[in-house]
């Protein structure tokens, strides 16, 4: 904690500020070369996120209730539905309640969409981007590994995440001396999230990038579902890590408006069950899906965490000019 009298000062050094500017230049050059158009969409929204694990900030314009974006996804997909271009955006996103060693409630996100790309093509492009940055910043390693969610789980925990039970997760936790959090009972997805952070992520290569893909069907969010080669229904969703730090989340995007509405409504029911506020479903986004979104893949990257990695600074708050405690 800074002394009270010093809390006006930035937490990031001049050098980190310069490296951030350079990272943004490199990212823009990367997309420019590939013909991906930079766009801007509003940070304010009349809808909030239905994701039961993410909470929107709310504000208002005079008497109208508005929310700050938790990601620019819905507006960017409306652009895709209208114009069909490959697009990217660097913007602030806001998530209420997310503050910690790897979280700041307001953070910088890079998000892009590629019509015609499947999940693996987009993983390759994200791999190219981070390897380019790793080279420019002389990162220790730029090795990239790809492993399915099920393989990662099987390797680290010896269980099949697509066909497991809360009891099996619980005995797996006991076997690996992992604490059972207070309030974690029989919900499979909560167990999978918990064991992922405690058991699976720590097995990823420490110096290098790891992709995991084919998430459980129940954690699809906005991804398409498909049957993988082992016959399990999985989500065409991937994440990127460096060591055990989560950097990005991407999908082969769900195109079906009716299915998307069902997921939003299901998420809203889950919110009510856990005592959270009901969210406002984004009807304009659903209208855009009804109009027709080109088959595409998209990904969101947390740029503050990426910069933390590129600069070797070990605290997120030293990457931000004015982290949350200094605003």
């Amino acid at each position: 904690m800074p002394a009270m009298s010093e809390s006006w000062r930035p937490a990031a050094s001049r050098e980190v500020m310069q490296l951030r500017a350079r990272m943004l230049r490199d990212i823009r050059a990367f997309f420019d070369q590939r013909g991906v158009l930079e766009v801007e969409t509003p940070l304010l929204s009349s809808a909030s996120t239905t994701d039961p694990n993410i909470n929107s900030f709310s504000t208002r314009y005079q008497h109208q209730r508005l929310y700050l974006n938790t990601s620019p996804e819905y507006c960017m997909k409306r652009l895709l539905a209208a114009h069909g271009d490959s697009i990217y955006q660097v913007c602030k996103s806001f998530r209420d309640g997310e503050l910690g060693p790897n979280h700041n409630p307001e953070f910088t996100m890079l998000e892009w969409y590629r019509p015609g790309f499947d999940m693996f093509e987009l993983m390759d492009e994200l791999g190219d981007l981070v390897q380019m940055l790793a080279g420019n910043y002389s990162l220790k390693s730029d090795s990239v590994q790809k492993i399915s969610y099920a393989e990662a789980y099987q390797h680290a925990a010896g269980i099949n995440p697509h066909a497991t039970s809360a009891d099996e997760c619980r005995s797996c936790a006991v076997k690996h001396s992992i604490e059972q959090p207070v309030g974690l009972e029989d919900n499979i997805d909560e167990w999978l999230d918990w064991l992922l952070t405690q058991l699976v992520m720590p097995t990823f290569q420490a110096d290098g990038f790891t992709f995991i893909y084919d998430y459980p069907e129940s954690q699809a969010a906005l991804a398409k579902l498909y049957k993988n080669q082992h016959g399990f229904n999985v989500a065409a969703r991937f994440e990127l890590f460096y060591g055990d730090t989560e950097l990005a989340n991407g999908y082969n995007e769900l195109l079906d408006a009716d299915e998307q509405r069902r997921r939003f409504e299901h998420e809203n029911r889950q919110r009510v069950k856990t005592g959270l506020q009901l969210s406002i479903i984004d009807e304009k986004f659903l209208e855009a899906l009804e109009h027709g979104l080109p088959a595409c893949s998209g990904v969101a990257v947390g740029l503050d965490r990426l910069l933390m990695l590129l600069t070797g600074v070990d605290k997120l708050e030293r990457i931000l000019a004015f982290p949350f405690p200094r605003i």
């Binding site: 993410i54 997310e98 503050l99 604490e179 207070v182 997805d189 999230d193 994440e239 989560e246 989340n249």
Partner: peptide, 30 residues
């Protein structure tokens, strides 16, 4: 400390001091 996968369930890992014994212990809550 917040433990949270981007799209997943959040957990709070806390360290507490037992005010009777003075001992420090760790506990995680959903």
């Amino acid at each position: 400390i917040l433990v949270k996968p981007g799209k997943g369930q959040a957990f709070n890992r806390v360290k507490v001091k037992n005010l009777k014994t003075g001992r420090t212990l760790e506990r995680t809550f959903k």
